[in-house]
Each structure stands twice: as C-alpha cells, then as structure tokens.
Nucleic acid binder design. Structure first.
Lengths: 94, 94
DNA sequence: ATTCTATTTAGAAAATAATCAAAATAGAGC
DNA sequence: GCTCTATTTTGATTATTTTCTAAATAGAAT
C-alpha cells in the first residue's frame, strides 16, 4: 500500500511481465504461470507480492483464481517522480 | 541504462532518499553520507548503483565528489507506467 | 614528501529475496 | 463421500543485495 511496496513489486522483471500480461485482460493463475519457466508455486509467490502492493486484485470463479491489473496504485509513484523532475516539495517517506 | 536498472535503483529506500536530497541542489558524497546512519562506504555503494542507472552524475571539485540528480532517466519508467494504465501496446522487456 | 581529508574499492558477513519440492486447501464433478 | 484440478502455503535451499571493516586512491595542505 505504500510507495515502497509498489516500487519493490515492480523492481522484479517477472512481476513486471505479469503486469504487462494483465494489461489487456484477466488471466487465471495457471495461465499466468504457464507463461514463465517457473513452477506455479513461484509464480504464486510473485502474485502474492503484487496483490499485497495493490497492483492486482483477485477474483474467484469455479476453482480458478483470476487476476486483474489495478494501475491506479501507480499514482503515488508518478507523483513522486514528478516531484523529483520538478525539484519541488513532496511528502517525506519513511 | 535499462528500465530494469532504474527500477532496481529506486526500489531501495536509502537510494530514494538520496535522490530526494539531490532534488534541489548538489551535495558531496560526505554530506550525503552524513544524512544516514550508515557508513560512508555503504552510501558510496548506493551512489554507485544510482550512477550506473544514470539517475545521478558526478562532478569532482577539490577532493570532493559532488553528485547531481538526472531525472530525465525516468522518462522510460513513465512511459512504461502509462502503457499499463492505458492498456495499450508497449515495447517488450527482456 | 608526509600527512590530512574525502571518497571509493575489495572482501567478508549479515540480511533479504527468489526458487523449488512437498504438503495443504478448496471447490468441481462424479 | 472420493477424486480431480487449480492454486496456495510451508519449509528448505540458493541467489542476490546490503552492510561493514579494512585497505586503497587521490588530491589538498602543510
């Protein structure tokens, strides 16, 4: 929920690719996992981090879990970057 | 120089604070180090990563090394984020 | 030239993160 | 109720990152 979690989440290339996958549509965990040369458990770990950062939401249907992108979380990152670009003030971070 | 390096660089809170410090003006390595409860060698390590990511530049004067922010590197990050927000196409990453 | 002062580099230790295998959960379909 | 199938959780292992101490560099000042 903090900018720290967001930036940590997108610092990993696997997690960025997951977000890119979800750009257009939802996918079930298994469909996401099949895109990588990683075990489902590993992808599940990445999904958990993305979920904790608020970058994706989950939705259960049958015994599938579908994931959706939530790009609104990026607002905080954008304003942090803008504040640097503009040399203006900005909320402190802990 | 790649988006991967930029995001890795800003995923660490110490490095983000360094960038925030440099938002308004340059500081010498020692002045930066004194802002943290970390040894100068450790801060130097963070400065190296920021420099490698292109987020800061260095400039020597006397026996000091001054660092400056280079926020232009964020362009790539901004366009990646926008592409997610808009659901449009975007260059693939490796 | 020797001695400060500022900073980095090298190497080791500590902390964190990513991965996997195996076990656990949960719901679907018989 | 069982038995699939999809997915997550747990615990262990490996890999990466952060931090430190000690040594190295470099230029300034005596």
């Amino acid at each position: 929920m903090a900018i720290s979690d967001t930036l940590k989440a997108i610092s990993d290339p696997v997690r960025r690719q997951i977000l890119e996958l979800l750009r257009k549509q939802s996918y079930a965990a298994g469909e996401i996992a099949s895109q990588f040369e990683l075990k489902p458990a590993t992808v599940s770990y990445h999904l958990k981090l993305l979920k904790e950062a608020g970058l994706i939401t989950e939705r259960k249907d049958k015994n599938f879990i579908y994931y959706d992108l939530n790009a609104s979380v990026f607002e905080e990152v954008l304003s942090w970057i803008y504040s640097l670009k503009m040399g203006g003030e900005h909320d402190e971070q802990k």
